[in-house]
């Protein structure tokens, strides 16, 4: 009888643990195209400031100036292909919204009054938000967040759960992947999407029950581990004061100048 198994080549050095892929890989290493490598705090600060300014501003010129500056900010950090894809997705969404509004116009008389002139400002604000949030969404890494936590003076009451959250999101993503695979294997050959469409409650159970059980068991185990570590809301999480590099400072100055320009245009608009 021949040998049960034979191989032409066997692995040499241990190949290491299962590589992390998918969403987790994305969160772990989203660095592609991040040419400026701005401090995460600066990105967050600019997003907050610009969102506030966009809400206050009512002059299309002021909003236009901020939008133009934000486009430069975006182009300096995100690949043109990604920007194009994001704007295309936005255009599709806007198109869908316009289509829905047109259809609903047959029911709601008010919707027939929408004019392109009056819709300019809302769309300028939307564009501004996209330009500021896209670098955040593309370049924020979970590992950066531990650093941000160390630099922010947040209450321990918030810092401790945030630390746990940041630490466990990759674990949960891994768990969710395993649950998805386990469900796929167990219910293979039963009709695919049609099977779940007929049994939405079973679908809910098979997704939700393992997640909840895992969560509750992890909460108990981690609480014990945290107590043993001496971790509490009064722990020292290693505070580091923020440090801005010259490129961060330059971007901050340009942002301040843009805001000043927008404020001037807003005042002139009001005076007129």
């Amino acid at each position: 009888m021949p040998a049960l198994f034979k191989t032409e080549k066997l692995p040499g050095e241990a190949a290491g643990p299962h590589p992390r892929r998918g969403l987790l890989g994305l969160l772990d290493g989203r660095r592609a195209g991040d040419r400026l490598g701005l401090a995460p705090e600066l990105r967050l600060g600019l997003a907050v400031t610009a969102s506030l300014a966009a809400l206050i501003a009512g002059d299309p010129l002021a909003l236009g100036l901020m939008l133009a500056a934000s486009l430069l900010y975006l182009a300096a950090q995100v690949r043109p292909r990604v920007i194009l894809a994001a704007y295309l997705a936005l255009a599709v969404l806007a198109g869908l919204a316009a289509g829905c509004l047109w259809l609903m116009g047959f029911v709601f008389q008010a919707l027939r009054n929408i004019s392109l002139d009056a819709a300019v400002n809302p769309f300028l604000r939307l564009g501004l938000s996209v330009n500021l949030l896209l670098p955040l969404a593309l370049h924020s890494r979970l590992t950066d967040l531990s650093g941000i936590l160390n630099r922010l003076r947040l209450p321990g009451l918030i810092k401790l759960p945030l630390l746990v959250t940041i630490r466990f999101i990759p674990t949960f993503l891994n768990d969710l992947n395993q649950i998805r695979e386990a469900v796929g294997l167990r219910f293979r050959g039963r009709g695919g999407l049609l099977f779940w469409a007929r049994r939405p409650l079973l679908g809910w159970r098979v997704c939700f029950t393992p997640l909840v059980v895992r969560l509750i068991r992890s909460a108990d185990e981690l609480a014990v581990a945290a107590e043993l570590k001496g971790l509490s809301a009064e722990s020292d999480f290693g505070h580091r004061p923020p440090r801005l590099r010259p490129v961060d400072q330059a971007v901050a100055v340009l942002a301040a100048l843009t805001l000043a320009g927008a404020a001037l245009l807003e005042i002139l608009h009001a005076a007129a």
Partner: peptide
């Protein structure tokens, strides 16, 4: 107010952090 002393124990804060993390992980997925 800074540390939650008297309001929450470490195990409560850990549980809150875990559930918040799970909620975000599901949202992302």
């Amino acid at each position: 107010l800074w540390t939650g002393r008297g309001l929450f124990e470490t195990r409560d804060l850990v549980t809150i952090g875990l559930f918040a993390g799970a909620a975000k992980a599901v949202t992302l997925m």
